[in-house]
Write a protein that binds this DNA or RNA. Sequence first.
DNA 1: GGGACCATGTAAGTTGTTACATGATTAG
DNA 2: CTAATCATGTAACAACTTACATGGTCCC
Lengths: 177, 177
Amino acid sequence: MSLRHAALGLLAQSPGSGYDLLKRFEHTLAHVWPATQSQLYTELGRLEAQGLIEVAGTGARNRKEYAITAAGRDELQEWLRHPVREVPRDANLLQVFLLGEVDADVAAAHLAELEGRAREHLAALQSLDRSIAWDDSARDRYARLALDSGIRQRRAITEWAADAQGAVRAHEDDPSR
Amino acid sequence: MSLRHAALGLLAQSPGSGYDLLKRFEHTLAHVWPATQSQLYTELGRLEAQGLIEVAGTGARNRKEYAITAAGRDELQEWLRHPVREVPRDANLLQVFLLGEVDADVAAAHLAELEGRAREHLAALQSLDRSIAWDDSARDRYARLALDSGIRQRRAITEWAADAQGAVRAHEDDPSR
DNA sequence: GGGACCATGTAAGTTGTTACATGATTAG
DNA sequence: CTAATCATGTAACAACTTACATGGTCCC
């Protein structure tokens, strides 16, 4: 039920068309809450039907400019009062959990690949951070905090993956069974 | 598409009924890949239809004991060769990103609650780690690695949440605009 | 005129959630 | 006998993905 609030939140920051929002999803929310074009347009229709957003104007090429309504802002602020309780599904951890079902060398290669990917992801987030000209608005302050959280989590994963390979290798050398 | 492999993986570790698997999901995969009863039984039916698992025997109370087949093991091992590429959706980060849309005191309370939750979660994982009598089997070694990854990620989030509150408070005191 | 990009929508299929429904066995 | 637990399934709905479909406008 979060895409709904993601769209509402972006419209609270500034009005725009479905197409505009899609670009914003791709640029700023790609690593946090990806959305497809199909999903977005469907959701915008629903939000409008519920009176949380409205068509503030139309432009060329059938463009519909959406804006958040007072009711929408209330709904958004209520949602932001408390952190959502969700169990984050992590397919990579699931795989690690099951890694005993393959040969030790395959498992080691898997962990090495995980580490490489995490390192790349970390580098991408850091370069994103550097490439943005942050201002001192509340919007940028919180966006930056969110990005920082992502960076720290990726860093933790990178370090873990390196240590995990060490542990596996140590056991391979000395399977003190 | 991961529930399928989660079920396959648990059956690779040892055979069991849908009910057994459900308990194992609750006890060992609750923080990694939650599954509902409904979903599991549906998936077991599909896996059996595809020949990746089979009914190895039946017991009292309509119990069907499933076991992985050779084809199932191949499928699982192929899946475990490479880490899955997935963008982890994080509703909590989405909320942080949008926190500029509420008053500063509400945002601060939100972050404080996030920190408290992360701290509780971290404590729960650590106590789980201590409560398990780990042996030196490959299964336990990788399960422990997975748990360790979760612990480190939670720790990173806890630290981030504390720092984030500091940053927000510092700005409230001196909104050097 | 044509290619790049703006712009919106629908359809079919998969995955996941919540609720409903039923019945067998065991332990006290 | 009765409550707890074992055990399996279906239905309805929400969320998400992939693919299809169409047309407008701008710039060269």
